[in-house]
Design a protein around this nucleic acid. Sequence first.
DNA 1: AAGATGATCAACCGCTCAGGC
DNA 2: TGCCTGAGCGGTTGATCATCT
Length: 249
Amino acid sequence: MEVHGSEEMELRRGPWTTEEDLALMNYIAVNGEGKWNSLARRAGLRRTGKSCRLRWLNYLRPDVRRGNITPEEQLLILELHSRWGNRWSKIARYFPGRTDNEIKNYWRTRVQKHAKQLKCDADSQQFKDVMRYLWMPRLLERIGGGGSSTSAAVEFGVATPATAETEAKSSPENSTAAGSSTTTTTTVDSLSAQFSPQPVSCGLMQPGGELWPESPPTALDFLDMEQMMWPAGEDLWSADDIWLLQQQF
DNA sequence: AAGATGATCAACCGCTCAGGC
DNA sequence: TGCCTGAGCGGTTGATCATCT
């Protein structure tokens, strides 16, 4: 799409062409990234610096990972979002090769879709309970390949389907922010340990006083296991699931 | 077969912040 | 101190594709 205006303001918008991609990649390969506005001019691109930066970071970078979000990644997204909210870039640091845009899109399309199906807000406590007591245990089952989900749940600090109902009914307060934080801490700790046996400090403090890892160096190896890929088109929730959940709201 | 509807995701926009002058 | 620029973040939009009727 062309933008009308003076010669110097003849900026392009919309989808990038192959030629533009090549020009950007070639320029960065030779000159490196940064100073995006001048980079755009020197590379001969009629794009804003912002647009070039976004295209590079979200699409052209060689280490960008594309494809389905794995159950492990979904689990970690749920955990980290419950902790930090919509801090997408912060969350994305735990997913080597994934962009904040991709994680944000996943959340908006998949997670918020389920909240909508349940007729509740994705930020509501009700939905957080569903994620904690139903969604995450199911993801753990997937990760465990249908094996011992209970032991996996203990390891990851997530309620199993069998225990969740009892716990939720007997003690609703357990799912308050304070109650969740204990479980969440354990879960993120465990996930971080799983993904990053030798974490690199980034200066962020966990509640326990230990430093968070900055980027999990072994996560890519773990997450790249093809057998862990989420089957295309398969959804976590069946129509029956939705109906049953709706009865509880 | 065709139009309607929904889902996905690339790209844009507005805003904030940091650093240099 | 204030202004400018670069960089980054989160929210939103719109094009495209898939599915449904």
